[in-house]
Amino acid sequence: MSDIASRVKAIIVDKLGVDENEVVTEASFTNDLGADSLDTVELIMEFEKEFDIQIPDDQAENIATVGQAISYIEEAKN
């Protein structure tokens, strides 16, 4: 697992209070990991802080799964 992926997963485990093994690539924040609308906003903010990036609202809307978060951040950091 890439460094980015493991950091993303650690944030999700911390903020959503879920088990690490639930945080799989396809998992949807809202449908699989129990996030509500405010949780999702908080996750995006944590990603921004952790990786020192800006995620505009219109792009944040497209980050709905663990895998989408990892790819977005990997791209943003390259």
Binding site: L38, V41, E42, M45, E48, K49
Partner: peptide
Amino acid sequence: PRFNPFFIP
């Protein structure tokens, strides 16, 4: 501003 979305509620 990086206020937590749970701040107000």
